Computed example of a mutant assay.
Amino acid sequence: MKIIFAGTPDFAAQALSALIAAGHEIVMVLTQPDRPSGRGMKLTPSAVKNVALEQQIPVYQPEKLRSAEQQAPLMGIDADVMVVAAYGLILPQIILDLPRFGCLNIHASLLPRWRGAAPIQRAILAGDQATGITIMQMDVGLDTGDMLSVHVTPIMPDDNAATLHDKLAAQGAEAIVDALANLSSLERRVQPAEGVTYAEKLSKEEALIDWTQTATQLDLKIRAFNPFPSAQTSLDGVILKLWRATPIDGTGVIGSIIAIDKEAITIACGSGALRVTELQKSGGKRLSANAFLAGSPLEVGTQFAVNV
């Protein structure tokens, strides 16, 4: 097929690479404008743009697609379909109607659960047992279009946002290739009205650890916010990022260290305790608990800020 591809991060880049490998003709790539990143805040192309440039595919990077001028580069393209994955711009109806078979979206959730910007993190944070990929026929709503195929993947107890992202990126790439190969036989299903939830963007404020929550809730937060924006607590005014932990039975003064061993720092929660095995001091490196304690000794009874 002749495809317009719209996407920005690594999640989308995997799908673009898979479509190229499957023999489809990518006639244009849409991606977000280069953004400043890194310590030097150097303008950096998106992961999708990098793939497109390697394959010598034309790239278009509009700030918006609202005006006729912004839409003009797409108007002369005779595409069969547009594939959209984590693009980041709203597509108006005139763009949705351009390709022969419309626009297909690779969404990282089991719709209608977790429509919106951060479905991977929200699924973990909510304690969902499974998530997956939905291939959806796009309309002007926020992830409200008809479903063409659904692919389930379990959320494992040790999954964080990074590991689950990688699983779903691979699953999404495979799912869109399969969907295009069988497009004429796929049944369009209207999303059910029941079970709709919205995956709001993550905020740094959400990442603050409230030790009055249960150990299970805090474990979910640490996993959901790894790698961004990272779950954080405070000790004597110093911010600590918590990267890996396990909820266990335990009691003590909420927010205080109740045990220390070579592998973990155990902290009492509102219910149960959290055995922290990987953490990071502000401005430092991610360290195992053992390495962290070697440079920053702690004692049983040390009190973390209960709610930063």
Rank of each mutant, 00 (worst) to 15 (best):
S271E: 09
K64C: 10
S46Q: 09
A47E: 05
G40S: 06
G102N: 12
A13K: 00
A224W: 04
S256Q: 03
G7H: 01
R66I: 06
F225A: 00
L180Q: 07
I257H: 01
A86I: 13
Q32C: 11
Q121T: 08
Q280P: 04
D80Q: 12
L111D: 02
I20F: 07
A181L: 04
L183V: 09
G250E: 02
V196Q: 13
T44E: 08
L202W: 09
S288G: 05
L242R: 15
G237L: 11
I4M: 05
L104E: 07
A224R: 03
L111N: 06
S234M: 09
S282F: 02
L208H: 10
A215D: 12
L298C: 11
E63D: 07
R113P: 05
A224V: 06
L208S: 15
A12L: 09
A173D: 08
R100M: 09
S17V: 12
V81D: 09
D249H: 11
E187W: 10
Q71K: 04
L183T: 03
Q70R: 08
G23E: 15
L89Y: 02
E174F: 06
D158Y: 01
A231R: 09
V81H: 15
S230V: 15
V81L: 08
K285A: 05
I57F: 06
T44L: 05
Q71S: 14
D166S: 13
T163P: 07
S46Y: 04
F101L: 07
A161H: 07
S203M: 06
D10Y: 09
L104N: 11
M156Y: 04
G7P: 14
T251Q: 15
